[in-house]
Design a protein around this nucleic acid. Structure first.
Lengths: 267, 267
DNA sequence: CAGTACAAGTGTATGATATACACAGTTTAG
DNA sequence: CTAAACTGTGTATATCATACACTTGTACTG
């Protein structure tokens, strides 16, 4: 019973987070190490029939094909042709396996485009790629993303964003802020598309999904509590309907406008 | 086995979503109705010992105190003093209960401030309030938010954002876009704070949490693959460390700058 | 007023799941 | 050669969601 009612705006600063170097508690430490360590194989005992990598791949495939719910220890081991408990030789718990498939599922970010087009174009490419990655693996968003240890692929995505952003000439502190802004926007603004992708993976058609969401939103129409929002919903289209990808790009450009203004004012 | 590999950028437009009025599939429809219907009590049979509202409150309290994992049908019913199966008289499944606690957990948005301060100030207030709400109930972000039916509180938050935004004079279509931008940013940019809040609810101290995350990020330092990002991490502080709330506000102002620029250019 | 149809809470059963634990077989350091 | 260390297996347990049948209470119907 660990009830805490304190508001979450404690005094923790960005610096304190960024520069923390203390050893974390052993359990988390262990989970993190599984993402990084070389799994140096000690010599004795029988050769392992497979590697943690195989386990992760099997789990990712299951999640891709049948959703995160299908990723059970039994299903993963069956997929590998072994009994349930065999997996525990490679991952100490299901949570540890989840950590691993989060990082593996993210994959690597796209390579920077050959002739550098300026930071805005590169950042746009990055955000689109990240959004597409999230939509291609909608189960990633079902996991408590940020809570999981940040593995190598995770860092690779951040690096791929940091590189073009650095061209702006902003200070390191400001760059850190802008990374948060862009990454946060990208994740948050992809949610609806992710939801659609998840439904699709479950065999629900786009039409059915839109009908369900539309019906929910439609409850606002006629309800005086939601008059303004309803007016936005029911307004006649302005003639150029947008796909979700186009909507995302539109929003992204607004965000980048804001960043650009800061860059111009600062540098 | 419903494997789909198609990229998620299908042709679904914002309009098609917004104006969908078809009836959704019956299961989803049922779940949605539980959030809205008046639960008109039919006359026969014994009086119900409690109401769905009681169930939801018990579940929310459990989640607040011990995390989402503590919300089991058994725990909720025990909290109400009844046997496990009693709950099924009120909610047909755990998913339906989850839908209900998502909406209940969001609560109502803050009332608009008495003297209108202009859309920017109001939107800022809104985003801060939403962020604080998410941090106060970090378990909300563990649920597949957007996938759940959108209940009355959900719509109330959207309405509370739509009202000040309408002052900008943007078209309905653009307003819809801006709502997505702001809401998406707010959710995405709160993730780190939410993660911290969740750890705190589990009894992990701020210091321990920072140590764990810091250790993960610290792996980038010295690794040539993440040189740029590492440089940002290790750069000396610029003298004014920021709390997470302050970081959020900074990012929010950049986003609003971008929106403002569009407003100025358009209206 | 009688009785019956329906509703509410209960008890028990089932199947899925994570994971602890002890075991048997395997390989190699010493 | 032998024992230590490791591998996969089999079995057991605890926790859940949830189906189903049952008992009891209530108020509408005749």
């Amino acid at each position: 019973m660990a009830s805490r009612k304190k508001p979450a705006k404690g005094g923790l600063t960005h610096d304190e987070l960024m520069h923390a170097a203390v050893r974390p508690d052993p359990a988390l430490q262990r989970r993190s190490e599984l993402l990084w360590d070389d799994r140096t194989r000690s010599t004795r005992g029988p050769k392992a029939a497979f590697t943690p990598e195989h386990v992760v791949q099997a789990a990712v495939k299951l999640a891709d094909e049948q959703g995160l719910g299908a990723v059970t220890m039994q299903a993963v081991s069956a997929r590998l042709g072994f009994t349930t408990m065999a997996i525990y030789r490679y991952f100490p718990s299901k949570d540890a396996l989840y950590d691993a498939i989060v990082d593996a599922g993210m994959g690597l970010p796209p390579r920077p485009s050959a002739p550098r087009n300026g930071w805005r174009a590169e950042v746009t490419r990055w955000a689109q790629a990240k959004r597409e990655m999230l939509c291609a693996r909608p189960w990633l968003a079902e996991l408590p993303f940020v809570a999981a240890p940040h593995g190598p692929n995770w860092l690779a995505w951040l690096e791929a964003l940091a590189v073009p952003l650095s061209e702006t000439g902003l200070s390191a502190a400001d760059l850190g802020q802008m990374i948060s802004v862009i990454d946060g926007f990208t994740r948050g603004a992809s949610d609806t598309s992710i939801s659609l992708a998840r439904s699709r993976a479950r065999g629900i058609s786009e039409r059915e999904w839109a009908a369900a969401v539309g019906a929910d939103l439609g409850r606002a129409i006629g309800d005086p509590r939601f008059a303004t929002f309803a007016a936005i919903l029911t307004a006649p289209s302005d003639g150029r309907p947008r796909t979700m990808a186009e909507s995302f790009d539109f929003g992204l450009q607004r965000v980048l406008d804001g960043i650009e203004r800061y860059v111009t004012a600062t540098c």
